[in-house]
């Protein structure tokens, strides 16, 4: 038995061990890496940012996933909430499945910890869990009157009495819906909220779903999309570079600029310092808590893991073709 035949029949548990090491080591030995921002992420960022400080514009986050895909979706939820909180954008959250309810509350709690002045019912509002049977009545009802369709929030308060509802009546104001899912749940929003009322819809999806959504990005049915952990890492970077940016020239964040995205990167392992492409030091407010760089730290391990998978495929194929050649020679 030659080396390749031995390798072909290797116990799968050795492969599992390599996988575990390829994930654990890069997480334990952190390093800085650059995040390439794609258009679907940048477009979503720009759309949300266009609501900054507006009384009559709001974002609705719909949580359509359970804990199984939290690793991919949770960092993007926290990043988007952070963006809204940094830029004074009204944000609502809702879910239609029981397991999503605590995840939604958890994301809100984690994101708002750093913003002690935010108030529920004023800056943000958690509509809470609504039974799946109410999906259509609420989605269609919000086209006419959000307060009438949703009725109460997670704390049981009548939402029409809440300050945050001032200026928010229907999809003209609740102008962007972002659905976080490991499924095609966002299409229900496209089918009912967009077709009927022209609402803007975006998606935060697990990477498995991402490639399928490109036709909907091109057609404008999705205004933007975050794809898996990479999408979350991109959004984390955008919030650092723009919404949460602070220096003497920009004390309260700065506007999106494609040139700045390309040139600036945030070294996640250092504190309070960022470097641009020329290597000159730029002061930022980057004293990042772990929760705001979780996806980017994860992407370090993702780099190594992708190389590992590619090496596995190449090795497997070399073994396959050599064995095939040998078999052909023998016969």
């Amino acid at each position: 038995m030659n080396l390749f035949e031995k390798m072909k029949n290797i116990d799968r548990r050795y492969i599992y061990l390599v996988v575990a090491l390829c994930i654990i080591i890069p997480l334990l030995i952190p390093f800085n890496s650059r995040t390439y921002v794609t258009d679907p992420t940048a477009n979503l960022y720009k759309k949300i940012d266009s609501f900054a400080g507006k009384e009559d514009k709001a974002v609705l986050l719909s949580f359509s996933h359970d804990a199984s895909t939290m690793a991919e979706l949770f960092p993007m939820e926290v990043s988007i909430l952070r963006h809204c909180f940094e830029r004074n954008i009204k944000v609502f959250t809702i879910c239609f499945s029981p397991p999503a309810a605590p995840l939604m509350a958890y994301a809100l709690n984690v994101a708002k910890e750093d913003y002690p002045n935010l108030k529920s019912g004023v800056n943000y509002c958690n509509f809470g869990y609504k039974p799946a049977g109410l999906f259509l009545p609420i989605v269609l009802g919000m086209g006419d009157d959000v307060a009438e369709a949703v009725q109460t929030d997670a704390d049981g308060r009548k939402i029409k009495n809440l300050e945050i509802l001032k200026g928010i009546r229907n999809y003209d104001d609740l102008n962007l819906i972002i659905d976080f899912a490991a499924s095609a749940a966002v299409f229900s929003w496209i089918t009912y909220a967009r077709v009927r009322f022209g609402a803007n819809v975006a998606a935060g999806v697990t990477a498995v779903m991402a490639a399928d959504n490109y036709p909907y990005l091109q057609s404008g049915q999705l205004v933007g999309m975050l794809s898996g952990l990479k999408g979350a890492a991109e959004y984390e970077k955008l919030v650092d570079v723009f919404a949460a940016y602070e220096d003497t020239e920009y004390p309260n964040g700065r506007e999106f600029s494609p040139e700045v995205v390309k040139d600036t990167w945030v070294p996640i392992m250092s504190k309070k310092i960022s470097y641009d492409s020329q290597g000159s030091v730029v002061q930022t407010n980057v004293d990042l808590p772990y929760k705001f760089k979780q996806a980017r730290i994860g992407m370090n391990a993702q780099s190594i893991a992708h190389i590992m998978i590619i090496v596995f495929i190449i090795l497997g194929n070399i073994g396959y073709f050599l064995t095939k050649k040998k078999t052909a020679e023998v016969s």
């Binding site: 290797i10 492969i15 996988v19 994930i23 804990a67 199984s68 690793a71 998978i309 495929i313 497997g316």
Partner: peptide
């Protein structure tokens, strides 16, 4: 929910990372 359902559900799906790596080595042939 937070300490029983959530971690187990997340871990159950994370096993797929191991399986896809094993499949990459043993099954994905050009």
């Amino acid at each position: 929910f937070a300490n029983v359902q959530m971690p187990m559900s997340a871990t159950m799906f994370s096993l797929l990372a191991f399986y896809i790596a094993s499949a990459a080595y043993k099954a994905f042939r050009a």
